[in-house]
Nucleic acid binder design. Structure first.
Length: 443
DNA sequence: CGGATTGGCG
C-alpha cells in the first residue's frame, strides 16, 4: 500500500507539492524503508525519495542506515555519509551513531576519523567506539575510550569486559566484572553476563574455566536460569566443546526460544555431528519455534561439514521460504559446500548473483576449492580482483593460497610477484589464538 | 498521530 502510494506519486508529479500529499508521503516513506524486506529495497526507496526531492527526515536516514549495515559495503556507507553530511544530520546523535556503527563494520580507520569530527556524542556513541577497538583487538585503546567517556552505562561496562576477554586479558576482564558488580547502581544485566560468557566462548579451555566460575556466580547470586542466561550458558558450553553440559543446561531451562535452540544447533554443527544438528532442527520446529538467520548458518555449516550438497541447497532455499534475509554467511557456506564438492561453476554463480560484495572469506574458500580440485582456470578468473582487495598484513592466508595456485599452474612469474608482495609486507599467517598463549602474554 | 542510535554469527 505504501509503495503503491509512492508509485502513484511518480505518475502524478503535479500533485507532488500539495501539502496533504507531501506530509503523507514523507511519513509513509520512512515507514516503508523501515518495513523494507531487504537492504536493497530500503536503498531503492531511499534513492527514490531523493530523486523526487522529498525532504529526508532523521527517521528515513536511520532506517536506511540500519538496514544497510549488514551489507558491509563501504561504497554504500560513503554514499549515505555524503547525504547525511549535506543534510546536516551529522549533528543528530542517533543518525551519527548509526553511521559510526556502519563505519565500524566496514572500515574502522574511517570510523575513528568520523568519531573525531562528530559535533555531538552520547553514551551509545562512545560504546560503539569501545566495540570498534575491541573488534580490531586494540584493548588498550578500548580502555582509553572507556576511561575518557563522560558517562558509562551497563552496556559500556559490558563492552569493555568483552574487549578484555576477546583480547585474551582474562583476569582484567573478570576483575572489571567484579568491580561492576561491587560498584553501586550497576547490576549486571543479561547483556553483561552475555558478553562475559560469549567472551569465554572464544577462549577454549581457559575460557571454559572462567565460564564455569561465572556459571557458579549466577547460581550463588540465585539469579536462576531464565531464557537469556540459560541461552548464553548453552552457547558458551557448546562453543567450548562441552556439548554434554550444553545439553544439560538446555534440559534444565523451563523456557526456550530461537536463540536457545540455535546455540545448541550451532554447537552440534561445530562439533561435526550433522545428523544430530538436523534432528535438533526438526525438534525445534515441532515445538513451534521458528528458525532465524543464525539457525540457518548452523544448519548450513553442518551440511558443509559432512558434504551434504542436496540438503544444503534445500536449506538454503528454505531461508526465503521462512521469510528470512539471506546473510553473507549463508552464501559463504554455500560457496564452501559447492566448492568442496568440486562444483566450482555453481559456486562461482552463487558469488556472482548474491546481493553482497564478496568478502575475503568468500574468496578464500572459493580459491581453496580451486586449489583442492586443481581448477586453475576458474581461479584465474578472480585472482587479480582478489589481489586488489586483500591486504598483505591481514590476509596472509589468501596470499599464500594465490601463490600456491600460480605455482601449481607453473606461472612462476606471477607466483614470484605475489611472494614478493608478501615478503615486503612481512606477511604472517593469521595470529594463532591459543588461549594459553594469550594468557601467557597477559601475565 | 508516531516511528529511534550501540550489543549476536567467520
Amino acid at each position: 500500500m505504501l509503495i503503491s502510494a509512492s508509485l502513484h506519486l511518480k505518475l502524478k508529479p503535479s500533485a507532488k507539492y500539495s501539502i496533504c500529499y507531501f506530509i503523507k508521503h514523507l511519513n509513509s516513506q520512512a515507514l516503508a524503508i523501515k518495513n523494507a524486506s531487504s537492504p536493497n529495497e530500503a536503498l531503492q526507496l531511499f534513492s527514490q525519495m531523493h530523486r523526487q526531492s522529498v525532504p529526508l527526515d532523521s527517521f528515513s536516514m536511520l532506517f536506511t542506515l540500519k538496514s544497510c549495515t549488514h551489507l558491509q559495503n563501504l561504497t554504500v556507507v560513503h554514499h549515505l555519509h555524503s547525504h547525511i553530511f549535506k543534510l546536516g544530520f551529522i549533528s543528530h546523535v542517533y543518525v551519527a551513531t548509526s553511521l559510526l556503527h556502519a563505519y565500524v563494520i566496514t572500515s574502522f580507520e574511517l570510523a575513528c576519523k568520523l568519531f573525531d569530527e562528530l559535533p555531538d556524542r552520547n553514551t551509545v556513541t562512545w560504546n560503539t567506539m569501545i566495540k570498534g577497538y575491541s573488534k580490531c583487538g586494540n584493548v588498550s585503546k578500548a580502555f582509553d575510550v572507556f576511561v575518557q567517556m563522560p558517562l558509562r552505562n551497563v552496556a559500556s561496562w559490558s563492552a569493555m569486559i568483552a574487549a578484555y576477554l576477546n583480547g585474551g586479558c582474562l583476569d582484567r576482564g573478570l576483575a572489571l566484572f567484579r568491580e561492576m558488580v561491587r560498584s553501586e547502581g550497576l547490576k549486571p544485566e543479561q547483556m553483561t553476563i552475555g558478553s562475559v560468557l560469549s567472551g569465554c566462548s572464544h577462549l577454549g579451555s581457559v575460557g571454559l574455566l572462567m565460564g564455569k566460575s561465572v556459571h557458579g556466580f549466577i547460581i550463588k547470586n540465585g539469579w536462576g536460569l531464565n531464557v537469556e542466561v540459560g541461552t548464553v550458558l548453552v552457547d558458551m558450553y557448546a562453543k567450548c566443546g562441552l556439548l554434554k553440559y550444553a545439553f544439560l543446561v538446555f534440559e534444565l531451562m523451563k523456557e526456550r526460544n530461537v536463540m536457545s535452540w540455535t546455540a545448541l544447533i550451532c554447537g552440534s554443527a561445530q562439533h561435526g555431528d550433522s545428523k544430530e544438528t538436523l534432528l535438533l532442527f526438526e525438534m525445534m520446529q515441532q515445538t513451534g519455534v521458528k528458525p532465524n538467520e543464525m539457525t540457518f548458518t548452523g544448519i548450513l555449516s553442518a551440511c558443509v561439514h559432512t558434504g551434504l550438497v542436496d540438503e544444503g541447497r534445500k536449506y538454503f532455499n528454505m531461508i526465503e521460504e521462512f521469510g528470512l534475509e539471506r546473510r553473507i554467511q549463508h552464501y559463504g557456506c554455500m560457496v564452501d559446500l559447492l566448492g568442496k564438492a568440486g562444483l566450482l561453476e555453481e559456486a562461482y554463480k552463487v558469488i556472482r548473483t548474491m546481493e553482497f560484495e564478496p568478502n575475503v572469506v568468500i574468496w578464500g574458500s572459493f580459491l581453496a576449492a580451486c586449489k583442492e580440485h586443481k581448477q586453475f582456470e576458474m581461479a584465474e578468473r578472480v585472482i587479480e580482483q582478489v589481489l586488489r582487495m586483500v591486504k598483505p598484513e591481514n590476509d596472509g592466508g589468501v596470499f599464500t593460497l594465490i601463490c600456491d595456485l600460480y605455482a601449481l599452474n607453473e606461472k612462476w612469474d606471477n607466483a614470484e610477484r605475489v611472494r614478493k608482495i608478501m615478503l615486503n609486507q612481512n606477511v604472517r599467517k593469521a595470529r594463532g589464538s591459543s588461549a594459553m598463549a594469550l594468557l601467557r602474554t597477559d601475565l
